[in-house]
């Protein structure tokens, strides 16, 4: 019987026992990593964005040290690359891409969407960002300069979007529900439904 014919749980258990016997990694470490990976989702990044919108001190920390700001909200960053945060303003809009592969701030946004990894997005985001944004229905004033962040090396980048108008007095929880992964990549901007 070939290993492919065994149930995947048995293959996984066999692999774990070999790794453990060789002293490379324990079962506990593997299961902790699985739990951390499953917790990572855009809701984590959205919590950070919402807090930055209501708390100026947190906003300053987020822009200075994204990793520390994530940890402050109990997001596990151990083993993750350093997190950088690009702040949108009325004058500058950021769009994140990885032209070389698919670098993505997984710890705070989860798995990258399929199109983020596509050759078309990676090639076009740097050449024609306004054209890409238009296809997402995102039209920015001509006076807003677009800054494409090519995530080429050791950092991972997310966007701190502008807080939408007419959200005065909203709670962090309510604000967080407005923020999508696409807003933190920069192809869209958060809107009040």
């Amino acid at each position: 019987m070939k290993w492919e014919q065994y149930p995947e749980e048995r293959v996984f258990a066999a692999l774990r026992s070999v790794l453990s016997a060789k002293g490379l990694v324990t079962d506990a470490e593997i299961f902790e990593t699985i739990a951390v990976t499953e917790r990572a989702s855009p809701e984590q990044g959205a919590r950070m964005v919402a807090k930055a919108w209501v708390d100026p001190d947190y906003r300053a920390l987020l822009l200075r040290d994204g990793t520390r700001a994530a940890e402050l909200l109990n997001i596990t960053m151990r083993g993750a690359p350093p997190l950088g945060v690009a702040e949108n303003t009325p004058d500058v809009h950021h769009l994140v891409v990885c032209t070389l592969c698919s670098c993505y701030p997984r710890a705070v946004l989860g798995y990258p969407p399929f199109w983020y990894k596509s050759v078309a997005y990676r090639a076009r985001a740097v050449r024609d960002p306004r054209g890409v944004l238009a296809e997402w229905g995102t039209v920015l004033p001509e006076s807003t300069r677009i800054r494409v962040v090519d995530s080429t090396a050791d950092y991972r980048w997310m966007v701190l979007p502008l807080r939408p108008a007419n959200t005065e007095g909203w709670s962090e929880e309510r604000l967080a529900k407005l923020v999508r992964a696409t807003d933190m990549i920069g192809v869209t901007v958060p809107k009040v439904p």
Partner: peptide
């Protein structure tokens, strides 16, 4: 139109 690209 013009834009900027920020690279590590």
């Amino acid at each position: 139109p013009e834009h900027d690209v920020l690279v590590e």
